[in-house]
Simulated assay, not measured.
Amino acid sequence: MGLSLFFIFAKIYADLILNTIFEDIPLNSPPLEGWISKFKEFWKTGWSINTTMKEILTTINGIPIRRNFVTNLPYNSYLKVLLKEKRKARILGEVIFWKKVRAKIFHEIDFDRQRIIGNYIVDFYVKALGLIVEIDGSIHDKKQVYDEMREKYFESLGLLVFKISDFDVRNNLNLAMKELEDFIWNHPVFKNLQFLNPPLRGRGISSSEPESLFQK
């Protein structure tokens, strides 16, 4: 936090100096023609790229994956007792999957196991991506209507849901992990970055803050 405040104040101070020094100098005054504009452009662009890099969580197949935090998720504290029971149950498919993603070993992505969201407990949750991963087994198959209602609820909160069959986790884990990988790096929410192909600006430099490099 201390370093972040330091860099913020450093940028404000540097901008003040730039505006003070160059405010009264005509941009067409030789030998400064074009140099001042390029310097200001470099300063603002560099700051924007630095901000953008902080939004990148990881890379998959060479594609930067941006963070997708979903804040203020509802939480039913009464489910804590049930949560402990589910963790003790040690369902085989969940245990196998957990060994593949625990401690950020899957593309340095942090997974939470058995997370309470609203009145539900999800199998796995990635906070930095707003992503729920569910292991579907025979129990899920018998509750199709319930699962559809549950998924619509998560989506109404702005969350993404990815489902893997328990059979695939137990019998073809590599395929299951590849499908999860493809889901993340192909999803537009995680890779919609302008800086992959940034537009060139003209010589005129606006005095306002640089635009965000993300599509909203």
Rank of each mutant, 00 (worst) to 15 (best):
E151H: 14
K163H: 11
V161G: 06
S156W: 04
F167Y: 15
F167L: 12
K178E: 14
M177R: 00
G158R: 01
L160H: 12
V161S: 10
F154D: 06
R150Q: 04
N174W: 14
A176Q: 03
I164L: 15
R170Y: 03
L157Y: 01
L159F: 02
N174S: 15
L157V: 00
Y153A: 10
R170C: 09
L159C: 02
F162Q: 07
N172S: 14
S156N: 03
L175H: 15
L173W: 04
Y153I: 08
L180M: 06
R150T: 04
R150E: 02
R170I: 10
A176M: 00
D168Q: 10
A176C: 05
N172P: 08
S165D: 02
N174A: 15
N171W: 03
M177C: 07
E151W: 11
L159H: 05
L159M: 06
K178R: 13
S165N: 05
A176D: 02
G158I: 05
F167M: 13
E151Y: 13
L159A: 07
L173G: 01
L173Q: 02
L175A: 15
F154R: 09
Y153R: 11
D168A: 13
N172Y: 09
K178T: 10
S165M: 01
V169N: 04
S156Q: 03
F154L: 07
E155G: 11
D166M: 07
D166V: 05
D166P: 09
N172Q: 10
F162N: 04
I164K: 08
F167C: 14
L160S: 12
K152Q: 13
I164N: 11
L173Y: 02
R150N: 07
Y153T: 05
F162L: 03
V161M: 06
V169T: 05
I164G: 13
F162H: 12
N174D: 15
G158C: 03
F154V: 00
L160C: 12
I164R: 07
G158E: 08
F162I: 00
S156A: 03
F154W: 06
K163T: 08
V161A: 04
L173C: 04
G158D: 08
E179W: 13
A176V: 01
K178Y: 13
K163N: 10
L180N: 05
N171M: 07
S156K: 04
V169D: 01
V169L: 08
N172V: 05
N174V: 14
N171P: 05
V169F: 06
E179T: 09
D168H: 09
K163Y: 10
D166W: 02
K152M: 13
D166N: 13
N174Q: 15
S156E: 04
K163F: 10
L173E: 02
R170M: 07
L157W: 02
F154K: 10
L173V: 05
N172M: 06
L180D: 06
F154E: 04
D168K: 07
K152V: 11
D166G: 13
A176Y: 00
L160I: 10
N174L: 14
F162P: 03
S156M: 00
L173M: 03
N174K: 15
S165Y: 02
V169I: 12
L173N: 01
L160V: 08
L160M: 13
L180P: 05
K178A: 12
L157C: 00
E155W: 10
E179L: 12
E151Q: 15
F154T: 03
D168M: 09
L180G: 07
Y153S: 08
